[in-house]
Write a protein that binds this DNA or RNA. Structure first.
Lengths: 145, 145
DNA sequence: GTAGATTAGTCCGATATCGGACTATTATCC
DNA sequence: GGATAATAGTCCGATATCGGACTAATCTAC
């Protein structure tokens, strides 16, 4: 029967994975087009919280972006390698590290917002505002399964 | 403004990534509950095509599952390690490798279908059939951006 | 004020995925 | 039938992510 085949071959899991991949490719291409080819989509987990408050700690960044501390360690290393942040030891707590934006990252901020807005506009152009909102809602519902 | 904040912090990309992650966790938990804890969600890329035609080649598997040949090489190694497939050299083409299901994999097939059906049912119970179909459609639309 | 608990961050190893470069084999074409 | 092209698969290194175990520093309670 077709039902079973569709359940395995056009699986919701498959669609979610591919859509996520595709989104990230579009985002990276957008950043590159605007002169920030070194910025990977995942860097958002570091940069976005810092745009709202520079100098946060590793653990705080991980918590705000809903990733593990291990992931944040790896990620900050890459973002630092690419010159967008710098780490400094916290003077008040010898265990902690504070992460600071560089000028390059500050220059990137409007580009990030613009690229995101462009992508959102493209999605709305394709799906329509109502279906786009309903997609949003459906994804959040899935998370509570 | 709130619009910008939502665009960056409750990003569609973020939701897609997290929903995909969550789906895979649910799937792995389901397999484990039914006695196949060793089966990872990604193994579907190997097993599903083989359920429809055992003994396919690496490249054919990669093509059918829309992953790269490199990914398939890695994946088949893991699936073989876990005892679900065996590789044999193709007698008609010395470059090619054919992948065959083991008895354990054949025993897993109905479990896979059952678990997938359970998950689909849970999604429909949460979203309703119409919103579930529209989610499906919206994700496919995204892929053509 | 020191012993024990907690916290911050990293190291290690695993899964999952890709692009580029490579090797081995087969096919093609004069 | 031998040079060249194409194909099958793997190796290497990269990104992205996690859990468990570890180290170093701080806090807590006596």
């Amino acid at each position: 029967m077709d039902g079973t085949r569709r359940a395995t071959r056009e699986n919701l899991g498959f669609l979610l994975a591919k859509a996520s991949q595709h989104w990230n490719e579009l985002l990276a291409a957008g950043f590159a087009r605007h002169g920030f080819a070194e910025v990977r989509p995942s860097y958002g987990s570091v940069l976005v919280p810092l745009f709202e408050g520079d100098g946060l700690r590793m653990g705080e960044l991980a918590w705000r972006s809903h990733v593990s501390k291990q992931t944040m360690t790896t990620l900050v290393r890459l973002v630092e390698r690419d010159g967008l942040v710098a780490r400094r030891r916290d003077p008040d707590d010898g265990r902690a590290t504070r992460v600071h934006l560089t000028d390059r990252a500050k220059a990137f901020r409007p580009i990030a917002e613009k690229t995101l807005a462009e992508l959102d506009a493209a999605v709305r152009a394709r799906l329509g505002g109502s279906e786009a909102r309903s997609l949003h809602g459906a994804l959040k519902e899935l998370m509570s399964l």
